[in-house]
Amino acid sequence: MSNQQLLAPILNFLHCQTPDEWVQEAVKPENLPELLLDHLMCELKAGQTAMFLMRKYALDKSSCDVVMKWFEPYEQYVYKKVGSMEELAKYNPPLKKVVANSDDPFAQSLVDKMMLLIKEELHHFYQVLEIMEQRGIEYRNIRAGRYAKGMMKHVITHEPNTLIDKLIIGAYIEARSCERFAKIAPLLDDDLNKFYTSLLRSEARHYQDYLALAEMVAGKDISERIRFFGEVEAELILSADPDFKFHSGIPLSS
């Protein structure tokens, strides 16, 4: 499948494309450290989100403990500056110990899809870290942008709607990531171009997985709710944003 074929359903799903103003800011050499730092944190947060969904909706106590331990080396490295890249490279989480807490088809599907997502996101995290080291970009703490919070504040607070909304939001985040990787890849140097292009397939699948899970939980047509979050997401992307991040809106400097 070509990249164009891969992107077609994503561009149809999103309510807008990334504005040129953001692209122009993203490819400035002086903004690369901020872009990579935020991308690094996005990969970790994507994995953590998948972990939280599994823990809350699909795992028993012992499996919850297992998935929490997967993230310890990464969280220690990021939040406490403990450990090294060499240790992360050797780390191999025990994936086989995780089982669904019921015979519900949704629980098993959630576990299967989120386990694969976590494995890929943590691998991407390490890849970004490698790129940063090669380019002499040191890790530092940065504050989160408004993007995810801007969608999460609209989540309905009773189940199963809470879960459905979170899964729809997950689909939009993954779809936007894929769209932006495709936008900036051809405008960056060869190594970054290859790296971002290599991420397209997994990000496209993640968006589809989240959407399929949302539809499975709902058991009914949720197109109106999907449309609602599509409009919220587009507003965040198309409005002025004082904070440049991987998922930020139009830079104020524009």
Rank of each mutant, 00 (worst) to 15 (best):
L187A: 11
L32T: 13
E34F: 09
M151T: 02
H39E: 02
S62W: 10
P73S: 00
R205G: 13
F13Q: 05
A46Q: 11
V23L: 04
A89M: 05
K119Q: 15
D60M: 06
M216P: 13
D190R: 15
D65L: 13
M41W: 05
K80H: 12
S177L: 06
E224H: 06
S239D: 09
Q48C: 11
L238H: 05
C178D: 01
L167N: 09
R205L: 14
E174H: 12
F52T: 13
D112K: 13
A89W: 01
E235K: 15
L200R: 12
A26C: 05
A234F: 10
C42L: 07
L53W: 12
M151E: 05
L117A: 15
K183I: 01
E21K: 05
E34Y: 11
L35M: 12
Q17H: 10
S254N: 06
M152G: 04
A8N: 09
D243N: 10
A50N: 15
Y91M: 00
K149R: 11
I237P: 08
R135C: 03
R176H: 07
Y79F: 14
G145W: 00
H154T: 02
A148L: 10
R205V: 10
L211H: 06
S2E: 11
I10D: 03
E87V: 02
F195Q: 09
E43I: 00
L32P: 04
V99N: 11
P9K: 12
Y74F: 01
V67S: 09
N141G: 11
V67P: 13
F195K: 07
P186M: 07
K56W: 09
C178L: 04
N141C: 11
I142M: 08
Y79R: 11
S84I: 03
L129P: 00
A182R: 03
D189E: 14
Q108I: 01
L199A: 08
E138I: 01
A107E: 01
L252S: 08
Y139N: 02
P160S: 10
R135F: 02
L110F: 00
F106Y: 08
P93N: 10
L129I: 00
Q108N: 09
H123K: 15
L187T: 08
D221S: 14
K245G: 06
I169E: 05
F195T: 10
Y79V: 04
D20Y: 08
W22N: 01
R205D: 12
K28M: 13
E30A: 14
F106I: 07
G83H: 00
A182D: 03
P242L: 04
R176S: 07
I173E: 09
E203Y: 02
K97M: 12
V82S: 00
M85D: 02
L167R: 09
N92R: 15
W70N: 05
D241P: 01
E130Q: 09
R146T: 02
I184W: 03
D104G: 06
Q134S: 06
E133R: 04
N193E: 14
L167E: 09
L95P: 12
K28I: 12
H206Y: 08
E75N: 04
T49Q: 15
E215M: 12
P73D: 00
E21A: 10
M132N: 03
E233H: 13
P160W: 11
D38L: 07
M115L: 15
L44I: 05
Q24E: 13
P19Q: 06
D221Y: 10
Y74S: 00
Y147H: 07
I156Y: 07
